[in-house]
Design a protein around this nucleic acid. Structure first.
Lengths: 346, 346
DNA sequence: GCAATTCTTGCAACCGTGTGCAAGATTTCA
DNA sequence: TGAAATCTTGCACACGGTTGCAAGAATTGC
């Protein structure tokens, strides 16, 4: 079933059919109605390949995810991302290719292939950044792209980006801890992790200073996994139990810390408070329920997609491209592992 | 950069270039080498749209996921599925479109659109089945597809399918419980869930009878969520604590049961044993660690993909299509919530 | 009522790649 | 050495849709 078939059924030329189905103003009103009806009855579908060839519009975008995305435990994040992306995509009748990258900081292979083969109209890049030459490549191909999730690595703002202000996230944790009277706090470094993790610790410090309290921060090397948290918490040498409060790298790692401490008889939050990051669905389910910082993943997904589709539309219409940064605020979710007031004595 | 550009650089016709880059035997060996070198130097990429138009090969497949897939908590499953799918796909240089369906049992909208628009070479259907007319549509379009994850709803075997034998999964749980001396067991029904859940209970019964023990099974209505398990376990009327052992609908629901029981002072497994299903990564992390049945999601993903690519290749070569059923065995993972021997007294 | 204008439609070229067919070049064989 | 067989290459059309241009049809204005 092609427009040629429709054309012969309706006794008009293919050009006319094409114009009718594309809602062109160059056809008579009655003709358009007639053709549209015939096409609907015949269950007509445009051939995306043919369209992609003649226009430069295939009705597909790609999202490029970090290769090690299970390592960073963003299962939940990406599920949310998918689910919410979908809403926008369905409305605009756009399909989604999911790509991965060997290297979290490059994504290069996949991008060049997808873009070079003209399979997509635009890209969502879940990465802090891409190499210069890849960026040049995308510009030369005139390919729209939006960075998502990761904050900008520097002050550059000549690309579109939707992200969470992790400074703010860390700050709210800092304020909570400070107001609870905690002073000796443990935070973590993950060498392999993206820069946002550092920003959270920066925020933590600022939160303390804003609350006008002294912070005695100890920084420990770890990774973003449950096991890492569990091991550190059970290791007597690391002395995690000697802190007032612990700021985990993410929810899963924080859960590891909680269970690790409990297995040594340390009470949470009575002896040590613990705060996670992400607010994965599990955070509210485990016992004790985890205090954490909610990443607005639905909004990120939604806004990233909306922005990309907007950039694509603008490009088609010849509207000059003005990059935008859209920063979202994370939200402190206070539960049991670090309560609102003076939980230290509980 | 098109084959036309390559052609003029090499002073040959586009046909020759096309043949060289497709490794046709109809070109001279030296010519082929020369052209391939030029193409590589020029970073040439085939235009997937043009290819899709002339051949019927776009190098993209789609996976159609159930719309309510967060409801059934298969986050982890699908992450695994993605990650393992990817291996096969990268090797064959195929891209993946992720589609969703409004209705878990139909998928129809998305399938017709994706297939009708010629965006994909084949489909992975994560669903127990599709309506007859959709199946006819796929046949008439000669579109390869493989069902994945869900067991066949009936004895029909005229479609490709890769799935887990949940009968066996239930059986192994039944045997474990029977051998542990448990007799009064609670299982669950979820009205909205696919048929596989019934099969697990069937398997449970068979497991008991094989161990030559009496089973006193009580069946309770529930849903596959953490909350559902938690609520049932904390509700004194439902009397979940009066059982010897409980077989959850999945890991998350089982975790809800564990925490619900514990919050009422019921000890797991000393008073009541609990078994989950899926073996999500969390099952081994929570305290007490969850005894569960591992779904071999990596193998399912891998084998589904391999099978689909095989069917696609066969179709191209004109090999007649012989559908296959590939059933995988789930594996009992014995941990703390239902130990191996006589944990009832522990 | 006729010319000018506006509507409506079809022709034909194009997007990038694949392939049957034919023709020229080369090799094989007697 | 000449005919037959085989290699190698290019032409031209096909895939399904879009779009500039021109021409015919309908409408407008005087």
């Amino acid at each position: 079933m092609t427009i040629k078939d429709i054309a012969s059924r309706a006794n008009v030329s293919v050009s006319t059919v094409s114009r009718c189905l594309n809602d062109s103003p160059l056809v008579a009103r009655e003709t358009k109605q007639r053709i549209v009806d015939i096409a609907r009855d015949a269950d007509f579908q445009f051939n995306a390949n043919a369209r992609g060839l003649s226009k430069s519009q295939v009705g597909t975008i790609a999202i490029i995810l970090p290769d090690d995305y299970d390592k960073f435990n963003v299962y939940f994040y990406h599920s949310a991302l998918h689910n919410h992306l979908r809403r926008s995509l369905e409305r605009e009748d756009v399909d989604l290719i999911v790509g991965f990258s060997r290297n979290r900081f490059s994504h290069v292979d996949n991008i060049r292939k997808l873009v070079g083969s003209k399979k997509v109209d635009g890209l969502i890049l879940v990465t802090p950044g891409i190499p210069r030459d890849t960026e040049r490549f995308l510009k030369s191909e005139n390919m729209p792209y939006v960075f998502s999730h990761y904050p900008p690595p520097s002050a550059r703002s000549d690309v579109d980006r939707v992200y969470v202000d992790h400074h703010k996230g860390g700050m709210s944790v800092g304020e909570l801890m400070a107001n609870n009277g905690y002073r000796r706090v443990i935070g973590f470094h993950d060498r392999g992790a993206p820069p946002e993790f550092e920003q959270r610790l920066e925020g933590l410090k600022i939160g303390f200073s804003m609350a006008d309290h002294e912070l005695e921060l100890r920084e420990v090397e770890a990774t973003s996994s449950f096991e890492s948290g569990f091991e550190l918490a059970t290791d007597p040498v690391r002395g995690l139990h000697e802190a007032d409060a612990i700021f985990g790298l993410n929810d899963l790692m924080a859960m590891g810390v909680v269970y690790g401490l409990q297995s040594r008889g340390v009470r949470v939050p009575a002896d040590v408070a613990v705060v996670g990051y992400d607010d994965t669905p599990l955070a509210g389910m485990i016992v004790p329920r985890l205090t954490t910082v909610r990443q607005p993943s639905e909004e990120i997904a939604f806004l990233t997609c909306e922005r990309l589709l907007e950039v694509i539309r603008d490009r088609q219409r010849g509207v000059p491209h003005v990059p935008r940064h859209i920063a979202l605020q994370p939200q402190l979710i206070i539960r049991e592992t670090c309560p609102a007031q003076g939980g230290a004595g509980g």
